Computed example of a mutant assay.
Amino acid sequence: MRATLLGVALAVSGMVVAVGPASAAGPCSVDSTRTTPGGYVAKVSCSSPTAFIDGYGSTTGDANREALLLRQFQSNGGPLCSGDLSRTAVGGFEVKMSCAKPTSFVDAFGTTLTDAAREARLLKEIAPGRFCTHDTVRAISGGYEVKGGCTKPTVWFSGVGSTVTQAAENARLSSGVG
């Protein structure tokens, strides 16, 4: 019943979560926080299995939540992923994330740092065994365009929107992956 209610709540909130049997994971603790372009990084350490995850967000709470959502993704059978860095980009921010087993790197854009971190995580969640990333963001008439691609098989995708976040979401949704 509890899992069903959680699934309904996540569906209503618009979050995409990998469906599968959840495995027990040990607790996590925030080791430190620091500033980064656009917000904060929360460094989280977890046990059983041991994992060190950097979450990025516009606030410390958002950064902590993104780290814990990456841990949840790992616990549900995805690879261990962690944020690497953030920087300013056209119309917002970019987050770079790396994942292990299989090794891959994800770049994603968003109007806010939280949006960029969420897009990086969601790009990995749509295809855990593939390498999917945003490549470019640019200003266009009326907003922004985000382009990206995936490997194995290779697909290219793009999306437009009045904000970078909207363009990034539309690009991810147009990928046909997942």
Rank of each mutant, 00 (worst) to 15 (best):
R87G: 10
P102W: 11
L122R: 09
P21H: 10
E119K: 00
P128R: 10
T35A: 14
G148A: 06
V16S: 15
G149H: 14
M97P: 03
L80K: 06
R172K: 08
V90E: 10
L80M: 12
A25H: 07
L80R: 11
C150D: 03
C99Q: 04
L123A: 11
G14D: 05
S98W: 03
S75H: 00
T33Q: 07
K124C: 13
Y40G: 09
G176R: 01
R87F: 01
F105Q: 15
R71E: 03
A3L: 14
L5E: 15
R172M: 04
T103D: 14
A11T: 13
M15E: 13
F52E: 14
W156I: 13
S13M: 12
N64Q: 15
A51I: 04
L10Y: 04
E169P: 01
I140W: 02
R65D: 12
G61H: 06
P37Y: 04
V160K: 10
V146H: 04
G143R: 03
D115W: 02
V164C: 06
S141Y: 05
G91M: 08
M97W: 05
I53F: 08
E66G: 07
T59W: 09
G110A: 11
F157D: 04
D107S: 11
L113V: 00
G77K: 05
R2G: 13
K43S: 15
A167V: 04
K43W: 07
V106D: 05
S86Y: 02
D31V: 13
I126C: 10
L85E: 12
G161T: 00
G26V: 09
G143M: 03
A139W: 00
T112E: 05
V17N: 08
A168V: 04
M97K: 03
G61L: 14
F157T: 04
A108D: 02
T136A: 13
G129A: 15
A116F: 01
R130I: 06
S141C: 03
G91Y: 04
P37W: 02
K101Q: 15
G39R: 05
G77Y: 04
V177D: 02
S82C: 08
V146K: 02
G14P: 00
G83I: 09
A9I: 11
H134S: 10
T136H: 10
S32H: 06
V12M: 12
S58G: 13
E145V: 10
Q74F: 14
L122Y: 09
L70D: 09
G110P: 07
L123R: 04
S23F: 13
T165D: 10
F73C: 08
P37F: 05
D62Y: 08
R130H: 12
V177E: 07
E66F: 06
P128C: 09
E94C: 06
A42E: 11
A139M: 04
V90T: 15
Y40C: 09
A89P: 08
A25E: 09
S45E: 12
S13Y: 05
M1A: 15
T165E: 07
V146I: 06
F157E: 05
T35N: 11
G26C: 06
A127D: 12
G55Q: 07
